[in-house]
């Protein structure tokens, strides 16, 4: 299994769900950064990121979301984080980011939050 995987799914209303799996660290973050940058370039600013398959995140990984959320919100979008494991959520808590990002438990709730 690769160390890191991104799956992209387009939904109606200009919403994209990214499902990320594996380890998001200083070795893999650039792949996610590029995917999000490409989406922004194509005018997609409403993103849900499914974190349920993410085994590990370091600050390099969390930094991708920090770098992107401002730009998404400036363009009437947002980044909703979905179903992080306890270990992954803990990193957002430690960084004091849990009140800055919106976390949802299901795809329906995430999509609703973006509409």
């Amino acid at each position: 299994m690769p160390a890191f995987q991104i799956l992209k799914e387009k939904l109606p209303d200009g919403i994209v769900i990214l499902t990320i799996r594996g380890f998001l660290d200083a070795h893999t973050f650039e792949e996610l950064e590029k995917t999000i940058d490409d989406l922004f370039e194509s005018g997609v600013y409403k993103l849900t990121v499914d974190l349920s398959g993410l085994d590990y995140i370091s600050s390099a990984g969390a930094g991708v979301f920090i770098g992107a959320i401002g730009r998404a919100q400036e363009n009437d979008g947002n980044i909703i984080l979905m179903k992080p494991s306890a270990n992954v959520k803990e990193v957002f808590d430690l960084l004091g980011l849990s009140h800055i990002f919106t976390f949802k438990d299901s795809r329906e709730e995430s999509v609703k939050a973006l509409r």
Partner: peptide, 12 residues
């Protein structure tokens, strides 16, 4: 976060 800065988090 407001500045979109992603570095410097590790030491924190």
């Amino acid at each position: 976060v407001r500045a979109g800065r992603r570095k410097g988090l590790g030491i924190f």
